[in-house]
Design a protein around this nucleic acid. Sequence first.
RNA 1: GGUGGGGUUCCCGAGUGGUCAAAGGGAACAGACUGUAAAUCUGUCGGCGAAGCCUUCGGAGGUUCAAAUCCUCCCCCCACCA
Length: 448
Amino acid sequence: MDYIMNVIDILLERGFIEQTTHDEELRRYADKEQITCYIGFDPTASSLHIGSLVPIMSLAHMQRLGHRPIALVGGGTGLVGDPSGKTEMRQLLTSEMVEENEQGIKKQLSRFIDFSDDRALMLNNADWLTKLEYIPFLRDVGRHFSVNRMIKAESYKIRLESDEGLNFIEFNYMLLQAYDFLELYNTHNCRLQMGGSDQWGNIVAGVELIRRMRQETVFGVTFPLITTSGGAKMGKTASGAVWLAEDRTSSYDYYQYWINTDDRDVERFMALFTFLPMEEIRDIGKLDGSDLNSAKIVLAFETTLLAHGKDKAEKAYQKSASHFGARSISRDILPSSRIHTELQTDLQVSVKDDVAVNDDFATVDIVDSYVDEIELKAGIPAFKLFHTVGLTSSSSAARRLIQQGGAYINDERVKSFDQLINDDYLDEEETIVLRAGKKRFHKIKIIK
RNA sequence: GGUGGGGUUCCCGAGUGGUCAAAGGGAACAGACUGUAAAUCUGUCGGCGAAGCCUUCGGAGGUUCAAAUCCUCCCCCCACCA
């Protein structure tokens, strides 16, 4: 094996690749030259979520191996709406929204990709798409597209067969994305486009457009759609998407999302969402229940480290340890992880009922909300407290929760829904810890 | 523009005058079992300090003791025709 693996091989090994347009040629090209490649990001929200992590990581891998990634914000295409894989027409964006979202996206991408000194580029296709003139576009670009072929494309098929139908504006999306590729090829010698598997048709359209107009071979790679073994789409939870932005999904929640990874997914996710070496990741398959949970901690730590930085990752780790009990992580598990050097993971810290709780852990807990001293002294019915604090969506829900035995205060089950909570429940730090079910905690502190 | 079919609680989907806060499934939540996993079983699943009352079946009116269900107008979606 060469001292440096081909980037395509690496992506393949880590599970990033579903299809490529020219397997062999692409590999040879990757060996020979610095590739400029691009991925489009929809500016539909001011933050990316976990669902975009595969493209992000693949760009990061590209850069790490000396290639040049372009993150293309779909400011122009966002005004049109991609029908691929969608069962219904998307809400169209205004230019102001796009602009705002672009800023958020760049900020997040910067954590994974180095944009300094043009080592990577961030472009917005609104810069060229909004300038297009209809007739010249039709004559130069449109004539290379066969409607007969387009309507056979998978990306349109669902919609053509559905009740929803396909709007003309969306039908144009493929041409615009193909044009993007052409533009990036012209201006940046970009020869590789990557994207989700639903982008296959759009990517191929670009590859073909460039061949027709420039007589050049360019490449396309698609990622598999990552689902959890439970069948859920990556990054979707009941409460919505798991965002990369901390103000939408806290680093603790982010960390917890990864901790709750299905056993069957740990190895696969480790390969996709961390940079740990594959030799070590393959060993995860040999782990049993308990050690597998340690591996999940590493996964959560590494992913949170990438998205939010070291401090946040460490805090999330400690907060989790204080809620669920710490566990020592053998250095044999993923030895390259910074968790072994940054944190004291081999320290035998107590599980809840043990005596010696590590001091670090006690101070970490973040207070989630405050309650007025006078109000608390008067006593607050438990169900009301659980509701106002946001652990349940209504006070009826809080009653149900309590009646079903799923509500805890300071680790003790709440017995009746109108149990009065007053200052007797305060601990030395003048806080009360509420818990709903096993995993949802809320710490309140008194305010004088 | 014409004809026909639709719009039901988070999603799918039953319901064509009272027994409907609305079947069934999924999702979700809680309990048991556990490893903060999965699977399984049980319970819950509009709101209200829980008695009863209030709000919900695209929107606005109307008929009726009583409307998701009937009537009128309007809005939106789909199919076929033009």
